[in-house]
Amino acid sequence: MAAPESGDGNNGAARMVTLISSDNTRFEVEAAAASLSQTLQLTILDGGGGGGDGIPLPNVDSATLSKVLEYCIKHAPAAANGGAPNATAVDRAELERFDNEFVNIDQSVLYSLIMAAHNLEIEGLQSLVAKKVADMIKGKSPMEIRRTLGFPDPTPEEQAEMNAHMLEYGWAYE
């Protein structure tokens, strides 16, 4: 998989770092974008990831990492402004639109994404995906939530317990 081309070559001043996914794909990105991850930020500040070394990320596969980096590159300029206090309304609306489309993806990718965001400590991405999943499960019954999240079917004991709760919290099932 090719590295995202943004910022590649036309800005010699930007420091680039290399990230290596679990399946050994190398991604070269600006340090500013990678620094959205609290985990990577420390390594980068220590001077790691430059040149041919690369930072290995054994928990993140290449498909997920490319998605994560897509988010980081888009959000890096705003983050560099210190949480974008002077961003224009247009910029904010553009980011919002991007976020909405960004999480409009297959469920399995969503889970890999939130796990990666959690491991890499990318707060904004984790919050974005968590909100998306919360929106997916809100208004659903416990069984529907289980199916949505791919949980195995409940055991008879669990089912009996759920039924008991349904009696007690009938109003919550509407």
């Binding site: 984790q126 919050s127 919360a134 409940p154 669990e158």
Partner: peptide
């Protein structure tokens, strides 16, 4: 992560929190 997700359920709809609590 489950906590992060459930945290974002709408607070003005208590039923959504109840239903989530009964998932497992």
């Amino acid at each position: 992560l489950i906590e992060e997700i459930v945290l974002r359920l709408p607070p003005d709809n208590p039923a959504s929190l109840i239903r989530a609590a009964l998932v497992c």
